[in-house]
């Protein structure tokens, strides 16, 4: 069973985000990047599939060359081969999906695993776009996966319960929290990861189907004012409602 895992490099969820000077991108200065947490479940599941059925596990990411750090971690966890598809500075979800699709066509995996969403932009588009582009079956938000010969049985979290669906290979599975407990890379594997090669490919350009116009940090909630019930404060309240809040 050959497994392809698509991973994404996202800012650490604890990082303080600052919008760049162009007002359209995140300022990467001092930001710590990690593997998208949902993709970690995908990696773990891919490794378990390989351990059970044999085959190989490849990880791919679309992004800058700096993505080698997350791929090294994937390699240390047990992935055998890693590829960066080099993206320009500005790209959209379709670009990512299109290039993942081109890569998938070249290696023809039996199963593609990826996180249900990337926690940076939360577009939720990649699994569906990818399935459309390469015509694989798709099951999203999977919290339990059982493979029985060619039969793929997936448990999906749905509002207030579970849904069990069945599909067959080749297919794409998007991972939900709870799918498994991702492993910690072992020390000897961290050392070995250094010597595993990371392939860097040029991306195929696509026209932007969506463009970020602007990006802003949510405004801090204004601090409320508390006034007393004295006559003076009642006058002040009327003045504030009229002049500051402009509601009367």
């Amino acid at each position: 069973m050959n497994v392809l895992i698509c991973i994404s490099r996202v800012p650490d969820t604890a990082t303080k985000i600052v919008v760049g000077s162009d007002g359209k991108t995140i300022d990467n200065q001092g930001v710590k990047f990690i593997i998208n947490p949902y993709d970690e479940y995908a990696i773990e599941e891919g490794l378990r599939i390989k351990e059970k059925f044999g085959g190989s596990v490849t990880a791919v990411t679309v992004g800058s060359e700096q993505s080698s750090d997350i791929l090294r971690t994937a390699l240390a966890m047990g992935v055998e081969k890693a590829t960066i598809i080099k993206a320009p500075e500005i790209f959209d979800s379709y670009f990512v999906a299109y290039n993942l699709a081109e890569y998938a066509k070249s290696i023809k995996p039996d199963i593609i695993l990826l996180g249900r969403q990337s926690v940076d932009f939360d577009s939720f588009q990649i699994p569906s776009l990818l399935a459309g582009l390469i015509d694989y079956n798709l099951v999203t938000v999977v919290s339990k996966l059982t493979i029985d010969a060619n039969k793929i049985i997936c448990e999906r979290d749905v509002e207030g319960g579970k849904e069990i669906v069945e599909t067959n290979l080749p297919c794409i599975i998007s991972a939900q929290k709870g799918l498994n407990e991702p492993r910690y890379p072992k020390l000897p594997d961290i050392m070995k990861a250094k010597s595993k090669p990371i392939e860097i490919l040029e991306a195929k350009p696509t026209d932007l189907k969506m463009e970020v116009i602007s990006m802003e940090i949510p405004m801090k909630q204004r601090i409320g004012k508390i006034l007393s019930d004295s006559d003076e404060d009642i006058n002040e309240l009327v003045r504030l409602l009229h002049e500051e809040a402009k509601v009367i």
């Binding site: 750090d69 090294r72 971690t73 240390a76 910690y184 890379p185 020390l187 961290i190 050392m191 250094k194």
Partner: peptide
């Protein structure tokens, strides 16, 4: 080094 950083991240997560 890159490996030392990965080592720290792994041990920190574990700890």
């Amino acid at each position: 080094t890159e490996e030392q950083i990965m080592l720290r991240e792994m041990v920190r997560d574990f700890a």
